[in-house]
Design a protein around this nucleic acid. Structure first.
Lengths: 356, 356
DNA sequence: CTGTTAGCGCCTTCAT
DNA sequence: ATGAAGGCGCTAACAG
């Protein structure tokens, strides 16, 4: 129906020129108070609203930022996005979300389509951080990915990684200290008197999982524990996978008396299997997860987990972006923020003996 | 650094005009194969990428849609958004998300800013569906809200409500059949032999909660149960609130033997309180929640709940939007989709007697 | 088939 | 203090 009213409409009505209207609307000092007031009034009356699209085309700033995540319906990513949105909204930015479903191809198309949409920045958690040291990954997909990242940078669009990063020159990042999170979790189990601590890991080509593995290992070494590679098993972040792996662990000649998992979901699966086989948690076997998923604290047997403060992470990612986008100087500096995770100690690992 | 290359750049290089380049790029039939090939090749070589902003300004279509939700870090909304994104992405649309934190004021500013950004549609779950029959709501905020909705429609921007809707002429909606969900849940409890079923409700000015209340009530009446208003208690969707209310219920002279809650969170709180007081679930008291939050199936004592298929809801919302936006005809028709919820029966309500 | 022209809505020099 | 003109990048109508 009613076409949107433009500055020309209101200019015509007032027998002045669009430029004047523009000035009045933008608090330009070079204009008389009377005409400004008049313009403002009629603008309001005519329901004028600025067309940000035209402004964007003119200024080269769209006030949109793209956020790329593997999926949005996971508490972690949703919370990060929440933080980003809350921090960016007051600054006038809109948040566009894209999902990759952990597929590199999606990642590439998403980046391209965001770039075409002229976003002012791209904040992303990369789909699958292949180890650049592995020669088989170095070519094909990986180089295509690097190309796209460099493409972003060449266009002067700020790019910021969060959680799952990749080391690329000129790219800032916000992550948590996975090493520390794992170290603390393992130390906690040791403090509870556990002697044989297993580790449910995941694809260690992904930095976050590798760092958790290293933190676990270091805690053992620092406590003069022997490190037994047989107690480290990879599994996907699924409940069923956790069950399977737990079953294997319980079949060992010398089963573990504690499990530290990189995922709350596999930790939950392990717990289910352990209880089903008649063991007691935490008396016989303690379990610690990672991510502090909402369900971990809701369980009757609440699960100890490592909190990653995702909303805070999102806030910081947004702040780093704002700094970069507001930094006019030609010299761009990377910024690397490492958040400290917090161990949430709950029933699944709190030995009654120690409690008392 | 490298400024983005435009069609002018490639036109100049080829000594042709920008229009021709545009035609070549858009598969316009009126162009020779040779020049098209040439243009395509040099475009690729120069890393040309279409500026969607300019296109949007020209065509009036931004290929952005705004999604407004109370908050994104809730499994329900995140899943709906997932569905929306997955359905819209292949069609070339980007999804902009806004949060209201259940505040009407935020809702208004979000709508306005999306409109300014020239989105092609707005999909929203309204913050707080005040009962329009309540005279005290009819003025101020409510009318301001209606104004803004009508404003959207006047601009010919498709508006679609999901989950929390409001009856406005010309606005389509996708919701679930809350009445049926509640009815089925209550009937299930009756089938399990329960005689005195309490209901944890919530602000019934919000349609979804009122409909759940009505479904609960109708199931009782259809089974010749007496309806006891004392067994209906309002509480927020929080674990602690559920505990408090459960405590009250257990203090009654004649406590209930089952609870149907409009929220999984308050259901969980109730469960915690009930177990703590030494009652058995489901033998003494059965509990059923609503929403099928992930944790309900993870609990050792898994919680029966009503699934709302949020991802599916998102997909459908997106489809309804696409239909509207692709419908050229002047006659706009509302579309109202009502999804059928599914009761997920779990341990918290499955009486062993019946199981056997 | 291709070039010319104009305009989407806004802002910003440059005049006046 | 205001008007005139140009341009952001693209497409569509109209010529040729």
């Amino acid at each position: 129906m009613s076409k949107k009213t433009t500055i020309y409409d209101i200019a015509k009505k007032l027998n002045i020129t669009a430029a004047t209207v523009s000035r009045a609307l933008n608090n330009n000092p070079k204009i008389s108070e009377t005409t400004r007031a008049l313009v403002l009034k009629t603008a309001a009356k005519m329901n004028y609203e600025q067309n940000k699209l035209a402004l964007a085309l003119k200024s080269g700033k769209s006030f949109n930022v793209g956020v790329i995540v593997p999926r949005i319906d996971s508490n972690f990513f949703a919370s990060v996005i929440r933080g980003i949105e809350e921090e960016l909204h007051p600054e006038g930015y809109h948040v566009i979300i894209c999902q990759t479903h952990d597929q590199k191809s999606q990642e590439l198309t998403n980046v391209n389509s965001l770039l075409n949409a002229q976003v002012d920045g791209i904040l992303m958690s990369i789909s699958n951080a292949n180890d650049p040291n592995k020669p088989e990954n170095k070519k094909d997909i990986n180089s295509a990915e690097n190309d796209i990242f460099n493409n972003i940078l060449k266009k002067n669009v700020p790019l910021i990684f969060f959680d799952r990063k990749k080391d690329i020159k000129g790219v800032s990042s916000v992550i948590i200290d996975d090493f520390k999170g794992a170290y603390d979790a393992t130390q906690h189990l040791i403090d509870q008197g556990k002697k044989r601590i297993a580790h449910l890991s995941n694809n260690r080509e992904i930095a976050i999982f590798n760092n958790r593995y290293l933190g676990y290992k270091q805690a053992l070494l620092d406590n003069d524990f022997e490190f037994d590679e047989n107690l480290v098993i990879n599994c996907f972040s699924k409940v069923d996978e956790g069950r399977k792996v737990a079953k294997k662990l319980l079949e060992m000649k010398e089963p573990p008396d504690a499990i530290f998992s990189v995922s709350d979901f596999s930790a939950l699966g392990a717990i289910q299997e352990i209880l089903e086989q008649g063991y007691k948690i935490p008396e016989d076997i303690s379990v610690v997860g990672f991510s502090n998923e909402p369900f971990t604290k809701f369980m009757e047997l609440s699960i100890t987990s490592v909190d990653q403060s995702p909303t805070e992470m999102g806030r910081i990612v947004a702040k780093v972006f704002l700094e970069e986008v507001n930094n006019d100087s030609k010299i761009k500096s990377e910024k690397h923020v490492v958040l400290s995770p917090e161990l949430m100690i709950r029933k699944s690992s709190l030995s009654p003996a120690v409690t008392a």
